[in-house]
Computed example of a mutant assay.
Amino acid sequence: MQQVIENLNTVMLDNLDIKDLILNLPKPLRPYLQVAPSMWMYEDPLYGQIKAMRMLYTTGKIVWASLVQANRNLFEPEWISCAGEVVFDPSGKMQPVQLVEAAEQLFSLKGTTPKVLDQQNYAAHLTNEFTRVFNYPFPQSLATLPLKMSSMWFEYRHLPGGLLAMKVFPIIVSEQNPNYIMPLPSYFWPNNFFKDKWLELAARENGGGLYDVEKEVLNKITNKVYLEEILLQPKLPQIFEEQIPRESAVTSSSKTKLSRFFLLFLAVILLCLFIFLNK
């Protein structure tokens, strides 16, 4: 796994534009963009991530993130959507291997009581496991890095193999609302080698059997046997109405004036024709 991570770099994400990826997704597959929030989320601050998904899809940027910690069900073939914690560079400039090093520094704070306040606060959060942080600054007493930490909900259907097989993965961030992030659905992941390695590792956790969750989900959507629409968020019109260019007020006004002129001209012609025929 370490060798795979070392082969990853920020260049892989440079040509990925989430808005283009959304627009190029075949229309029948659009439900893939949606998630089915767990019931407990409705009373959890993480539900803000669900409400922010439309904004992330329409204004977001794709960057690498590294896992700090997560619910243990996400590491096993349980296929349950759960919460976790990641560290990332909002600018997307830091290399994946550097993010892993930062994540390991952060995780080492768990269960400790550091004397330095910024480490102490984050250590208490990690140890608790039920608190949430959003766009939280990296402890500068550890290293002067422009990194952020955020709690995040993982939709298992958006992960290859349905589980966390590696410490690094792409996420979506947005300057318009930096408090919430989400994993980039694996259909859009940039590198087949990376995804294949992820599936290979996931298969080991599954006792050697490969369960390609992404493929199964897409098959269910295609065959219209996916989840009930009422369970899915965000609603598709919320995503795609933001992607459709709207006519400017000037263009719309010009078309209205032209229509009125045409109708007036037609009325004059008809009136003249009526007068001519009744002479």
Rank of each mutant, 00 (worst) to 15 (best):
G60M: 09
I181E: 01
A83G: 12
V268I: 14
A249L: 12
F130G: 15
L277I: 06
Q176T: 14
L29R: 10
I275H: 05
N15A: 12
Q238V: 09
I244G: 07
I230T: 07
L258M: 12
Q49P: 11
P90N: 07
L74N: 08
T144A: 08
E78H: 13
I172V: 06
Q176F: 15
P28C: 07
L126G: 11
M39F: 10
S174R: 00
L126F: 09
K235I: 13
L29M: 13
Q105A: 13
V68L: 05
I5N: 09
L163I: 02
P178Y: 06
L236I: 12
R246E: 13
F169E: 06
I22Y: 03
L33H: 10
V250T: 13
E6W: 06
K215H: 05
K257H: 08
I50Q: 04
A123D: 09
R260N: 15
L21T: 03
N24V: 04
M41Y: 07
N7F: 01
V173C: 07
T256C: 02
T251W: 13
L8T: 01
S259C: 05
W64F: 05
D17E: 13
I172A: 05
D14E: 15
N24C: 08
A103Y: 01
N206L: 01
E216T: 12
V97Y: 11
E85D: 15
M94R: 11
F261P: 00
V100D: 00
N219T: 10
L74A: 02
W40T: 15
E76G: 02
L67Q: 09
M1P: 07
L273G: 10
P139Y: 00
N206S: 11
S151I: 02
P183Q: 10
W189T: 09
Q120K: 03
K61F: 09
D20C: 06
N121S: 09
L126K: 08
I80L: 15
H158S: 00
N15K: 14
N24A: 08
S141I: 02
M1Y: 13
N15G: 14
P90I: 09
G162W: 02
R132H: 03
W64R: 03
L210A: 15
W64M: 04
Y57G: 06
D118V: 11
K19P: 00
L25E: 15
F274L: 14
I244P: 08
P245R: 11
A165H: 03
K220P: 00
L142N: 01
T58S: 10
E200W: 07
